[in-house]
């Protein structure tokens, strides 16, 4: 059992985090497999075909969750970077670093599934539509953030720099997004899910989609936990090697 802890910041100690992560990773893994397979099987095989889009509409069960994650992972990185800058918890920094690659892959898969979906519906794989352009912009900022970690050695200084890069990146990603939307609204359909009930997609698609999104979020969390665990162990090995050498 996980013991009751005084406050949430104790998870920020790498060792506490590691012991908890070891316990909950299998649990998350099983939950991910159950939700994802339930959502995908329901979505892909037990939903009717759309009267206009035919069976190609079913890619929505991969496209929407990955797009949702692509944006929200960047947001999570921003939060983690700010927490690192203010409270200087190493796990927070490592979480931002580990999330970046998953975010990049989510962005790529959202773009790819979008392209596959776009071909039969719009007749083109790619168009310079504002929503597609904002994903291209997101991709660039993910690449920038990843490249700072690729070229420089892990240290607190690089942590600070990458956090600032993430903050600056989010400001300008947002500005670019509004700059793109300023000129036209594009041919992309409106958001699939919104709080306004009138605009939502049909109930038949709604519930499997929600389950798919939960499944993908769980997948992200599992991958993130595993990557953070690896990163912490890598740092431990480095410190031990340095202690042995010098």
């Amino acid at each position: 059992m996980i013991k009751f802890r005084k406050n949430i910041w104790e998870f920020a100690n790498p060792n506490n985090f590691l012991s908890i992560a070891n316990k909950i990773i299998p649990f998350f893994l099983i939950l991910t497999i159950i939700t994802l397979s339930l959502g995908l099987v329901w979505g892909l095989f037990f939903t009717p075909e759309d009267y206009r889009q035919g069976s190609s509409v079913k890619i929505i069960f991969v496209h929407v969750p990955t797009a949702f994650l692509a944006i929200n992972i960047y947001f999570m990185m921003l939060l983690a970077s700010i927490i690192w800058l203010i409270r200087r918890h190493h796990v927070s920094l490592i979480a931002a670093k580990s999330a970046a690659l998953i975010g990049l892959i989510m962005t790529l898969s959202a773009v790819l599934t979008g392209a596959i979906w776009g071909k039969p519906i719009w007749g083109t794989y790619w168009a310079w539509d504002p929503r597609l352009t904002s994903f291209a912009i997101l991709l660039m900022f993910y690449l920038g953030y990843l490249s700072i970690w690729q070229t420089m050695k892990f240290s607190d200084k690089i942590g600070d720099l990458s956090s600032w890069l993430c903050i600056v990146g989010s400001i300008f990603a947002l500005l670019s997004r509004y700059a793109v939307f300023f000129w036209d609204q594009g041919l992309h359909q409106g958001p699939s899910l919104s709080l306004d009930k009138e605009e939502n997609i049909d109930n038949v698609f709604y519930f499997p989609l929600i389950i798919c999104i939960i499944g993908f979020v769980l997948l992200f969390l599992t991958l993130l936990l595993i990557r953070i665990k690896t990163e912490i162990q890598k740092r431990k090995i480095n410190i031990l090697l340095n202690a042995r050498d010098g």
């Binding site: 912009i137 920038g144 070229t151 990146g169 300008f172 670019s176 509004y178 700059a179």
Partner: peptide, 23 residues
């Protein structure tokens, strides 16, 4: 302090020029 930072600057900074360039 980073050697060969020129390429890195382009990677970091060119995307941030986007709003200005688009307008």
């Amino acid at each position: 302090g980073e050697k060969g930072g020129n390429l890195l600057i382009s990677i970091f900074i060119l995307p941030t020029f986007l709003p200005i360039i688009i307008f």
